[in-house]
Structures are given as C-alpha cells and as structure tokens.
Nucleic acid binder design. Structure first.
Length: 277
DNA sequence: CTTTCGTCCTGACTGC
DNA sequence: TGCAGTCAGGACGAAA
C-alpha cells in the first residue's frame, strides 16, 4: 500500500503529465470513494491549469491556477495510471482527468479506500485532513528533541506511535516494521521506555529507510503501480516485512522472523535482533 | 487527556 | 470445481 515513498514516487510520475498543463476533461464514474467525491470536484478541475503537484504526508496535493487544490489519498489499493485518454477504462477506474495533450491520469482503486477532496489554497493547513498531521519525517521539524517529547509518558507500543500520523506522518505498516528492525527495537516496546539514545538511533534510521525506498522508486506490493505506468518498477525485498518464518537477515543471528498482531495489524520482527526496552 | 476498536472495500488466498 | 471464510490495511470517529 502506498506509504510516503510510494506517494512521493507517484507525485514525480504525475508532474510531467499535469504540471503546467490545462485539464481539458474530467470523468467521475461514481459519486463516492471512501467519502463522497465533492460536488465541486469536476467544476474545480475542468479548464484549470495545474500549477504544482506536491505531497503532504500520504496525500497528493494538486495546486490549480484558480485558487483551489485537489487533495488525493490513494488509500490501500489506489493507483494512478498514465495513458492516452483514448485508452478504454478498466473496471475500477473511478476518476479520469485528461490534459491538453491527450494524455490522461486514470485513478483506479478496487477497494475504494482512497478519496479526494477540494480545498481552497488558504485553508489547506486547517482542513480536516491536514489539521492534525505531525511533522514530515524528512523535514527539519522532525528532530530528536521533538520525537523525545512526542513519545514521553506514552505507554502505547512504539509500533503504534510511529503509525500515528499526529506524531509523524508518512509511515505505514511496512516502513515502521523495517525501521524498528534496523534500530533493534521490539515493536511492543512502550514508547515511554525509549531513552534518548534509542531515539538518536531510531530517527535517522527512519529517514534512511524512507530515503532508500524513494530512491528505489517506491516499493511495490501486490496492488501498487508506479505513476509512469511503465513496466519494471522496483520490487523491494524487505528485511522483515512479510518475511515470517524466514531467517533474520542479521548475519550474527540464527533466529527467524516472527509475526504478531498489534491493534489488528501484523508486525514482523526478529526476537533476537530487536530488544524489548 | 489517552487509547482502543469498529468501519469502510474487494481481490487473493486457504481449506473443506 | 465451488463456496465460505479470512486477510490485507489508512484514517476517521465513536466509545471507553
């Protein structure tokens, strides 16, 4: 599912098709995704020029030249496929937007966990979806002093804390599992048990895991396709995610990766490499 | 305030 | 071969 690196990759793939281009056609094939598609969605996009494609957390933000922005969340199974506007639609193509050169973005989302919203330029930070977001993990505001403060006194497991978008955005189940593995921290560790030294270790590892995934062009699971629509996107091999029963990749360890369920989500970890604090 | 849990959805997979 | 059941998971909102 798309986490920060995948969304970043989608943004990069969308830019050549949309930035600087006028939207000449908008097709909305159903009234709702996870939430209703806003009434003004089509009229806001129709005829507008896309000034910028940005990303905040796991949201794609399309800034238009008419004062509006389109916010876009890919949910679990959302894909952006770029092709000619003449391409026949596929079963779960819910939204199609075409540019002034006959190219189109097909938003395909079988599970419909994705959603779109419209927001005026000066209301972005205060809107429902953005108001409670924490700092970007690759930005200056995400530093050890901040994370120490954010985890202080909280007994919730570190796994859950890192998934909490109010603490830090962009991380999902995969990259949290991976970061905790490389940091050698057991996912059930109460957040408040992390000492400053652990935070100093963990924080740059989170950034490293994300940066490497971005560099790899976003990782690919079952239902993610790179925005360019091109073949050959990177098939990521994870250290622990989805590796239950496989040998821990740490060469000085002969244990196997185990799976537990935390708050209904699978956590993968090595019982020897990752310590309970 | 913090924390947990139900909800949304369909395709892939498992087991009988 | 068919069918029922389970699982995957992001974010919201309600409830404890």
């Amino acid at each position: 599912m798309p986490e920060l690196p995948e969304v970043e990759t989608v943004c990069r793939g969308l830019r050549p098709v949309l930035e600087g281009h006028k939207i000449t056609e908008v097709r909305k094939n159903r009234p709702d995704l996870r939430f209703p598609i806003p009434e003004n969605f089509v009229s806001v996009l129709q005829g507008a020029r896309v000034e910028h494609i940005g990303r905040r957390a796991k949201y794609i933000l399309m800034r238009l030249d008419n004062g509006w922005n389109i916010g876009w969340h890919l949910g679990m199974s959302g894909r952006m496929v770029i092709d000619d506007i003449t391409r026949p639609e596929e079963k779960h193509d819910h939204i199609v937007i075409a540019n002034d050169e006959g190219k189109a973005v097909f938003f395909c989302d079988p599970r419909r966990f994705g959603y779109v919203f419209t927001v005026a330029e000066d209301e972005i930070e205060d809107c429902k979806h953005f108001a409670h977001l924490g700092p970007e993990p690759l930005g200056n505001a995400f530093h050890a002093d901040y994370l120490e403060q954010a985890l202080k006194g909280r007994k919730t497991p570190i796994k859950n804390a890192l998934l909490d978008q109010r603490i830090v955005v962009g991380l999902g189940n995969i990259y949290v599992c991976e970061a905790l593995y490389y940091a050698g921290i057991h996912p059930e560790t109460p957040s408040k048990n992390l000492k400053r030294t652990h935070i100093d270790t963990l924080l740059p590892i989170i950034q490293d895991v994300l940066n490497k995934a971005i560099a790899a062009g976003g990782s690919s699971l079952k239902d993610y396709v790179q925005a360019s629509g091109e073949l050959g996107y990177f098939q990521h091999q994870f250290a622990v995610y989805g590796q239950e029963g496989e040998k821990c990749p740490n060469c000085s360890c002969d244990k196997s990766v185990e799976r537990i369920v935390q708050s209904g989500r699978s956590s993968f970890y090595c019982p020897e490499t990752q310590l309970r604090l």
